[in-house]
Nucleic acid binder design. Sequence first.
DNA 1: AATTCTCTCAACCGCACTTAC
DNA 2: TGTAAGTGCGGTTGAGAGAAT
Length: 345
Amino acid sequence: MGRSPCCDQDKGVKKGPWMQEEDDKLTAYINENGYGNWRSLPKLAGLNRCGKSCRLRWMNYLRPDIRRGKFSDEEESTIIRLHALLGNKWSKIAGHLPGRTDNEIKNYWNTHMRKKLLQMGIDPMTHEPRTNELSPILDVSQMLVAAINNGQFGNNNLFNNSTTALEDLLKLQLIHKMLQIISPKAVPNINSFNTATSVNPKPDTTVPHVFINQSGITPEAATSDLISSYDNVWDGIEDNQLPGLVTVSQDGLNASKPGTSTTTEGNDQTGAGYYPDQLHKIPSSGLVSVSPVTSGLNHPGTAQHSSAGSDVLEDWGKFLDDETSDSCWKSFLDLTSPTSSPLPW
DNA sequence: AATTCTCTCAACCGCACTTAC
DNA sequence: TGTAAGTGCGGTTGAGAGAAT
């Protein structure tokens, strides 16, 4: 079905800014009769306007419950979180902000908040750190790859369900780094580990010691410090509590297993690497940001975009709406919500 | 004081979805 | 079931205001 022509488009109806007299006519008519059929309303109200124009004027300006003025910090935070969840669904976002119109929110986003996020190094579309800000995540994931490739986990014990203290530490550090990027003020500052030595877009896996703790603290002690810093944030961590989990295919990663050649051409050792079983399930859309364009965390250093984001969005929406959920991931999300701690913006 | 530039936001445009027949 | 009318939505535009030169 094609587009239907706009009502009265070619009948010389008035366009442009509304006059006070027109506002009065429209307000008076709707107050007395309500609104229902916008197409017929202009004629009935004595207005030489298109019905769409009348609807827009009423919805965005004349409605009595319109809230005007500067957006509050709380409203800003809400918009950011909802935009991360819903994308440019302005009317849906407006539904969560009483008195605000989709048009107003859209304008505010495009003129203020986009700039603000860009200044913070956050991509306003994906809500993910822009390339440079991903480096800490890449650092840690690269550390894992380097450690695995160089046998730092011992006799491949990552693959027989045993867990080393070092492995625990590295995993926790990876999550911690991600949380720091998402909300620097909301996560504890951990001084006991200082593993990332440089930002290296193409990690040198021939240097096995890059992840070794510089301060000499043992992995066990560092892990203990990190865990205690989060108190009960970590409580109840279990697999599969986050909607949109994907299982990373080892084959799809062009992976190399530990113990195999590290120099074979075409066998990617430089960041994509091989993910141990324990790390196969990763959030397909990041911890907080959920947008139609999702991050390719399964391949650090590349920007893999998913075209199947809608299902994940729905899952996230249901997940976040589920008040009964006691998922540990919800704890993470709550950690960044304005009700529990201030966001950096 | 005049001109130019930048920013803001109300309004428009056109597509897509829903509803009615 | 197909079609047209009605409506909603998101992207874009452009006039006006304020800032900068």
